[in-house]
């Protein structure tokens, strides 16, 4: 399990635009970089990030090797109702990780 830093407010007013910041520990090996033996290291990156608000996908992104190691993504969403937010990262070599956060909307 990779370490994840998720910045999601615990509560928000209805209709408020909240900012979500997500960072996950990952090498993001580009596939263009030579290793210690001079041979190019195979690519190992996170290719996909999806955020669901309840069951609805509110943000999804396709990542490429030009994204830095420990990918950081920040975006916004509207707090419509109390729900569980699900964050899912997936990528090369079967990488998959899911995190959830509960958001209370008042």
């Amino acid at each position: 399990m990779a370490r994840v830093l998720l910045n999601v407010p615990r509560s928000a007013a209805r209709g408020e635009v909240i900012e979500i910041r997500a960072l996950i520990q990952h090498e993001m090996e580009t596939g263009y970089r030579p290793g210690a033996n001079g041979e190019v290291l195979p690519r190992d990156i996170i290719r996909r990030f999806v955020c669901r608000y309840g069951n609805e996908v509110v943000f999804q992104a396709e990542l490429f090797p030009a994204i830095s190691a420990n990918p950081f993504i920040s975006f916004t969403t509207v707090a419509t109702e109390s729900a569980t937010l699900t964050f899912h990262w997936s990528g090369d070599n079967g990488f998959a990780q899911t995190e959830t956060r509960v958001l209370a909307v008042t």
């Binding site: 635009v17 909240i18 580009t30 608000y53 609805e56 996908v57 509110v58 943000f59 999804q60 992104a61 396709e62 990542l63 490429f64 090797p65 030009a66 994204i67 830095s68 990918p71 950081f72 993504i73 920040s74 975006f75 916004t76 969403t77 509207v78 419509t80």
Partner: peptide
Amino acid sequence: ITAQIGPRAGRARLSTRIR
């Protein structure tokens, strides 16, 4: 990066770190 957003985003903003 290619990101899909929509009206649920509230604001059209995306921030990340690149190489």
